[in-house]
Design a binder for these strands. Structure first.
Lengths: 248, 248
DNA sequence: GGAATTAGTGTAAAGTTTACACTACCTGCT
DNA sequence: AGCAGGTAGTGTAAACTTTACACTAATTCC
């Protein structure tokens, strides 16, 4: 550190977009800011990265302090560093998103956690700092992720019905899926274990419960498998340009 | 800045993985370090982000100083911030990758550019700092990108043959593609304009030259189209687990 | 004129995706 | 007991996409 001293004047933070799924709706955990700047506004949970701490460690710490959860899905998404994004100086933030089961979430005693609340992703529209932009980037990443791997298992309780799983996918993809085709696709992956149990206390035919075969999932990931879910085209009727080859 | 002063002691940089394509091989532009640390080793081009500069601006600046090129494909990939990654202090780096046409690249007068050299991506194995890890992350991103959009056009000269295009895809994907299927797929996208010209000075049947229809490409991107290129399975014979549904 | 070399082309079979509608099973009400 | 209301669960045929595969065409060089 000599001629470069002038560059060592910035700070960096992590911000964590924590997704959960409840009541058929995709949610995000937000903190109500108790102080300026943006006092009273909702913001993503985040904090400065300590000098002795790796980025991933910082993201896990923020998540743990807030939810008490460890070993959850956590992924770095993008870094935001516009010059004026933070009023107190040059602050770059690294955005992460994580997927948790809301049923496993317990309010933590930390003061920050008391100000936390789940919000429907689709209804969030105004956040502190550039946090709306960060949320959008993470939501888009989740949409992409859900098309290439069966990521929903991170968000559902240990036992779930196929309809719940489908609703989760529909919430993330913001589209409707065909029930029969969805089931065929999901079951053909052999990642579900049929528990031979059914729902109780519902006023209609109870659905079978499934759990997720974690062992096969690990294999799936290791082999770089991927699958595709396409939206039901029942209602769309997009002009499907056939784009045929201009061959002789 | 008051109680947070202790956090404003880090620096951040951008590192740019600049890909080019030449002689049937995917290349990356590296700088030979003239000073400690890692003196004599090859490194990714990068520099500190100025206090008054956005991240993307810094990445463009680094690219411009080195190659004289602007308006090229540039994308943020990932941020690396391990505690000990830089000997002179806490330095976080934001990795970008760009795609350029080597034929358009002119050596710049800047001192840094004189130390630059193209290396085959497949042969790079030891770089300064954590730059190998950064290169790998960017290469993986490129692999992903090339499967979802016809990104190769950024790397080829304005006129090219279908075989050149195929070789580019093969270099990026590190696999072989079937000639007829590749051509069918590419031509069916209608993104190529047949120039009604042929190669000259080759000792075999000359190939037709094509250029890229930029207007249609913009439309393609805007409509969120995507396409898939799958490797030729001629040689592999992967045990294709049929994974059929366990339905009644 | 023939050897060498790469360009260029079509098709049938296998596999995947799509659209679509009815019966089954449970509760709660009368 | 039976019916209404509600969600669960299932199969198939048609359209489309992907795959595997081999010969002829055009040029240069000798």
């Amino acid at each position: 550190m000599n001629e470069f001293n002038e560059y060592f004047k910035s700070a960096f933070t992590v911000d964590n977009v924590i997704f959960g799924f409840d009541e058929g709706d995709l949610k995000v955990l937000l903190i109500n800011r108790g102080e300026e700047p943006f006092k009273g506004k909702w913001a993503l949970p985040g904090y400065f990265v300590y000098p002795s701490e790796d980025l991933d460690t910082a993201a896990k710490r923020v998540l743990d302090e807030l939810t008490g959860l460890r070993n959850v899905y956590l992924e770095q998404v993008k870094t935001f560093g516009a010059v004026g994004r933070h009023p107190i100086g040059r602050v770059i933030t690294v955005a992460y998103f994580s997927l948790i089961k809301i049923s496993h979430y317990n309010i933590q005693p930390s003061s920050i956690a008391k100000k936390a609340k789940w919000h429907s992703v689709s209804k969030v529209d105004d956040l502190a700092f550039d946090h709306k932009e960060i949320l959008d980037a993470c939501f888009n990443r989740l949409k992409w992720l859900v098309r290439s791997r069966p990521v929903g298992f991170e968000l559902l309780p240990p036992k779930f019905t196929l309809t719940e799983l489908q609703h989760l996918y529909e919430a993330i993809l913001e589209t409707e899926l065909d029930k029969r085709n969805f089931r065929k696709k999901i079951l053909s992956m052999n990642l579900l274990i049929d528990l031979d149990e059914t729902q109780e206390g519902v006023a209609h035919r109870p659905a079978r419960l499934y759990k997720f075969d974690r062992e096969k999932y690990e294999k799936f990931l290791a082999e770089g498998f991927s699958f595709e879910l396409k939206e039901s085209k029942k209602k769309e009727k997009k002009t499907k340009k056939k784009m045929r080859a201009n061959l002789a």
